[in-house]
Amino acid sequence: GQVNVNNTTYTFPTPKLAKEFAQKAAKKYNLTVHVSGNTVTVK
Rank of each mutant, 00 (worst) to 15 (best):
G1C: 10
G1Y: 06
G1N: 12
G1E: 12
G1L: 11
G1T: 13
G1F: 10
G1W: 07
Q2A: 12
Q2K: 09
Q2S: 12
Q2L: 11
Q2R: 05
V3P: 12
V3I: 12
V3W: 08
V3L: 13
V3F: 10
V3D: 11
V3H: 12
N4Q: 13
N4A: 13
N4R: 05
N4W: 11
V5A: 12
V5P: 12
V5T: 11
V5D: 11
V5F: 12
V5Q: 11
V5N: 12
V5I: 13
V5G: 13
N6M: 14
N6K: 14
N6I: 14
N6T: 13
N6H: 15
N7E: 15
N7L: 15
N7P: 10
N7D: 11
N7R: 13
N7Y: 15
N7T: 15
N7H: 15
T8C: 14
T8S: 09
T8N: 08
T8K: 14
T8P: 05
T8R: 14
T9R: 07
T9G: 03
Y10G: 00
Y10K: 02
Y10A: 01
Y10Q: 02
Y10L: 06
Y10I: 07
T11F: 10
T11R: 08
T11K: 07
T11L: 06
T11D: 04
F12Q: 01
F12S: 01
F12K: 01
F12R: 00
F12W: 02
P13Q: 08
P13V: 05
P13N: 07
P13T: 08
P13S: 10
T14W: 03
T14Y: 03
T14P: 01
T14G: 04
T14I: 02
T14S: 10
T14L: 03
P15D: 10
P15E: 15
P15M: 11
P15Q: 10
P15V: 13
K16A: 14
K16W: 08
K16V: 07
K16M: 10
K16D: 13
K16F: 09
K16P: 03
K16T: 10
K16H: 10
L17V: 05
L17G: 04
L17E: 12
L17Y: 04
L17S: 06
L17A: 13
L17D: 09
L17W: 05
A18P: 00
A18T: 02
A18V: 02
A18M: 01
A18F: 01
A18K: 00
A18L: 02
A18G: 01
A18C: 01
K19S: 07
K19W: 15
K19L: 14
K19M: 14
K19G: 05
K19Y: 13
E20T: 06
E20H: 07
E20R: 12
E20Q: 12
E20W: 15
E20P: 00
E20A: 14
E20V: 08
E20S: 07
E20G: 04
F21N: 01
F21Y: 05
F21T: 01
F21E: 01
F21M: 02
A22I: 02
A22R: 01
A22G: 04
A22W: 02
A22H: 01
A22F: 02
A22L: 02
A22E: 02
Q23A: 13
Q23T: 10
Q23I: 14
Q23L: 12
Q23G: 05
Q23R: 14
K24Y: 15
K24L: 14
K24E: 08
K24F: 13
K24C: 14
A25H: 07
A25C: 08
A25T: 08
A26P: 02
A26E: 10
A26M: 13
A26R: 14
A26Y: 07
A26N: 06
K27F: 07
K27S: 10
K27R: 09
K28M: 08
K28A: 06
K28I: 11
K28H: 10
K28P: 02
K28E: 11
Y29A: 06
Y29D: 05
Y29W: 13
Y29K: 06
Y29R: 04
Y29E: 05
N30G: 15
N30F: 09
N30K: 08
N30L: 06
N30I: 03
L31S: 04
L31G: 05
L31P: 01
L31M: 08
L31H: 06
T32P: 05
T32R: 06
T32K: 09
T32H: 08
T32E: 11
T32I: 14
T32M: 08
T32D: 09
V33N: 00
V33A: 05
V33P: 03
H34A: 08
H34Q: 09
H34Y: 14
H34W: 14
H34N: 07
V35P: 01
V35G: 00
V35D: 01
V35R: 05
V35K: 02
V35H: 04
V35C: 03
V35E: 02
V35A: 03
V35F: 03
S36M: 10
S36E: 13
S36L: 09
S36Y: 09
S36I: 11
S36G: 03
S36H: 11
G37C: 03
G37F: 04
G37M: 04
G37I: 03
G37Q: 04
G37H: 05
G37Y: 04
N38T: 08
N38M: 06
N38S: 08
N38F: 04
N38G: 03
N38K: 07
N38E: 03
T39F: 05
T39W: 03
T39I: 11
T39Q: 08
T39H: 06
T39L: 07
T39R: 08
T39M: 09
T39P: 00
V40Q: 00
V40M: 02
V40I: 03
V40T: 01
V40H: 00
T41H: 07
T41N: 04
T41R: 04
T41K: 04
T41P: 00
V42G: 00
V42H: 01
V42D: 00
V42M: 05
K43R: 11
K43Y: 15
K43P: 06
K43H: 14
K43E: 13
